[in-house]
Nucleic acid binder design. Structure first.
Length: 496
RNA sequence: GGCCUCAUCGUCUAAUGGUUAGGACACAUGGUUCUCAACCAUGUAAUAGGGGUUCGAUUCCCCUUGGGGCUACCA
C-alpha cells in the first residue's frame, strides 16, 4: 500500500510551491490507490501561527485535495485527526521523539552536547575563515566526548541546557536512489552532527520526520529539491534505528520570474492570493501539474481525475520551473469557458457581493447569469466579472460621437437609429431571442440597403454605452425588449 | 568559502546516437467581424561554451560557465 504525506508547518498560508508538491504527493497516492496523509509539523514553537491549520486545510479542500488520513476537516469544518497512526500533530508526539532519541543515545548513534549559541557561531566563523565546511566540531566543542564522565553527569543532573546530536560516522558514503534525480552520493565527511533534540525538548525536523515517516509507514517521501542535502542525515538515522528507509522523490522547485525562489516579499506566493484574485481551482491545479511534469502527449487540459489517471513520478523533470502567470491566465480562460454556466454563476457570486454598486441594484439571478454568459469569454478571472457586466444593469454615460461607426457619419446615425428603433418596436416579445433578432434585423438591414456596421455599431453602443462589448443581439436579449428600446431612446436624445 | 543540484525557443516542455529539433503560452502578421474577446491560418524564436567517445551527438563522458538549493537548537 502506497502512503504519501504532506507535512506542512502551520505558519499561515499554503505556499504555491508547497501546493505543487502536495498535488504531486496526492496524485501519486491516488494513482496507486494509496493513502494521502496530512501531518502537522509544528516543532518550531517560535514560528507557530495559531489557527493557521484550519485555513490551510480549507485551501487544500478548495483545490480538491482532501486527505484520507491525518489532520483533516470534519463535516462542520473543524480541524480533527483521523487514522490509526496518530497523533498526526508533532507537538502531540513529544514523548515519542524523546523515547527514540534515548534509543539513539543508548546505542551510541547520538550524544549530548552543551555548547552555547555564541560558541557555535564562533566555531563556524573559524571554519569559514579557513575555508573549511561548517560543521559541528565534535573533537573540540563541549560534549559527551570532550568532557569527563563526571562533568557530563553533573551537567545532565543540573538544569543546564543540553541538546542531542547525531553521531555521523567518520568516513562512509551515503547513497540513495532518488526517483527523480537518480543515484545520489554524499560523503559523511560533509555531513553535520545534526541536532536531533533541541534544548526546549522539541525534536528538530530531522528527527521528527524520520520517526514519524517510519511509524506512519510512509512509503514515498515526496518533497522539494531543497531537502536533498538533508536526505543523507535522514538515511543515517534510519540506519541507526535499524529501519528500512522509504523511497525519496525530490521535486524541482517552483521559482519566480527572476529565477529566484518564489519569495513572500514579491507577493503572490500564497495559494489564497490566487483564490482571491478569482482564479479557478481547476486552472491552478492544471497549471501547477504541468510545472515540472507532463504526460508526454500534446494534451494540455487535464482535470484532477485525468491527472490521477496519467500521473507518474518518472515523468517529473529535474530542472526548476518558473511560475508563469500568463500561462495560468490562459488556463483560467479555458476553464472559464467550459465550466457550466450555472456553476460559474454560483462561484462568481462572492465577487458581485464585493462590488459596491451591486447592493443598490435590483436584479435577479437569472439576469446575472445571462450577463455572465455574455462576458465569460472576455475576462481572465472571476474577479473581473462584475465590472465587465455592470453595463447591463447600469448604462454608462457616453458621448454621441461614440455612436458613429468609423466608416459612417453622424448624419447617417441620426437617420438610421430612429428607423431601427421603430422597427425593433414591431418585433414581439415572443420573438425576442438571439436567432430571430439576428435574422430579422439582418433582413431589415439588407432591405434598407444599409451597411451592417452602420446599423450594428450604433445599436451596440446604444445598448452597452461602451466602445468594446459583446454583440448587440446578445445584449438586446439579456436586456429585454423594454430596456433595449429605452436605451435606444436615450441614444436618440443624445443625437438631438 | 564548502557541499549538493540543474541546464532545449522569452516561459512551460517534447524528442532521438541519424528529425526540416515538435507542441503549448506569450508575441507578430493575416483572415473572420459592427467593436473587443474568441476562433482560424501563418510567422519570429532554442539544444549555454569548449573538449572528447562515435561514421554521426542536442542526446553519452569530462571541463568551463551560468542558475538554484543547503550550509541553524527553521521547516
Amino acid at each position: 500500500m502506497i502512503r504519501t504525506r504532506f507535512a506542512p508547518s502551520p505558519t499561515g498560508y499554503v505556499h504555491i510551491g508547497n501546493l505543487r508538491t502536495t498535488l504531486f504527493e496526492y496524485l501519486f497516492a491516488k494513482k496507486n490507490k494509496g493513502v494521502f496523509i496530512i501531518r502537522v509539523e509544528d516543532t518550531d514553537q517560535e514560528r507557530l501561527v495559531p489557527g493557521a491549520m484550519e485555513g490551510m486545510l480549507k485551501t487544500l479542500q478548495w483545490v480538491g485535495i482532501i486527505p484520507d488520513e491525518g489532520v483533516t476537516l470534519d463535516s462542520a469544518g473543524n480541524v480533527t485527526q483521523k487514522g490509526d497512526f496518530g497523533p498526526y500533530i508533532q507537538s502531540e508526539r513529544l514523548p515519542i521523539y524523546k523515547k527514540y532519541a534515548e534509543e539513539l543515545l543508548n546505542n551510541g548513534s547520538a550524544y549530548y552536547a552543551f555548547d552555547t549559541t555564541e560558541e557555535l557561531s564562533a566555531m563556524r566563523e573559524r571554519q569559514q575563515a579557513r575555508k573549511l565546511p561548517t560543521k559541528y566540531d565534535r573533537e573540540h566543542m563541549r560534549n559527551q566526548y570532550t568532557l569527563s564522565a563526571d562533568e557530563v553527569k553533573n551537567i545532565l543532573a543540573s538544569d543546564a541546557p543540553r541538546v542531542v546530536r547525531l553521531k555521523v560516522p567518520a568516513s562512509e558514503e551515503v547513497v540513495f536512489d532518488d526517483i527523480v534525480h537518480g543515484k545520489t552520493v554524499f560523503d559523511c565527511k560533509e555531513i553535520d552532527d545534526q541536532v536531533l533534540l533541541k534544548s526546549d525538548g522539541f525534536p528538530t525536523y530531522h528527527l521528527a520526520v524520520v520517526v514519524d515517516d517510519h511509524l506512519m509507514e510512509i512509503t514515498h517521501v515526496i518533497r522539494g529539491d531543497d531537502w536533498i542535502s538533508s536526505t543523507p542525515k535522514h538515511l543515517l538515522l534510519y540506519k541507526a534505528f535499524g529501519w528500512m528507509p522509504p523511497l525519496h522523490a525530490h521535486l524541482p522547485l517552483v521559482i519566480g520570474g527572476d529565477k529566484l525562489k518564489l519569495s513572500k516579499r514579491k507577493g503572490d506566493v500564497s495559494t489564497e492570493s490566487y483564490r482571491a484574485k478569482g482564479y479557478l481551482p481547476e486552472a491552478l491545479v492544471n497549471f501547477l501539474a504541468f510545472l515540472g511534469w507532463n504526460p508526454g502527449t500534446e494534451k494540455e487540459l487535464y482535470s484532477m481525475e485525468e491527472l490521477i489517471k496519467d500521473f507518474s513520478l518518472e515523468k517529473v523533470s529535474k530542472a526548476g520551473a518558473i511560475f508563469n502567470v500568463e500561462k495560468l491566465d490562459w488556463y483560467n480562460k479555458e476553464y472559464l469557458k467550459c465550466i457550466p454556466l450555472s456553476e460559474l454563476a454560483i462561484r462568481a457570486r462572492q465577487w458581485f457581493e464585493q462590488a459596491e454598486w451591486f447592493e443598490k441594484l435590483t436584479m435577479n439571478n437569472e439576469q446575472i447569469t445571462n450577463a455572465i454568459a455574455l462576458e465569460r469569454e472576455r475576462v481572465t478571472t472571476l474577479a473581473e466579472l462584475p465590472a465587465a457586466i455592470k453595463f447591463i444593469f447600469e448604462l454608462p454615460d457616453y458621448s454621441k460621437e461614440l455612436l458613429v461607426w468609423r466608416k459612417g457619419t453622424l448624419e447617417e446615425v441620426k437617420k438610421i437609429l430612429p428607423e431601427l428603433k421603430n422597427y425593433l418596436d414591431t418585433i414581439s416579445i415572443q420573438e425576442w431571442n438571439k436567432a430571430l433578432l439576428e435574422q430579422k434585423i439582418g433582413g431589415w438591414i439588407k432591405q434598407k440597403n444599409y451597411s451592417t456596421g452602420n446599423v450594428l455599431w450604433p445599436l451596440r453602443v446604444a445598448l452597452s454605452g461602451q466602445q468594446n462589448s459583446p454583440g448587440p443581439y446578445e445584449i438586446a436579449v439579456v436586456l429585454g425588449k423594454d430596456d433595449t428600446l429605452n436605451r435606444l431612446a436615450i441614444a436618440l436624445q443624445k443625437l438631438v
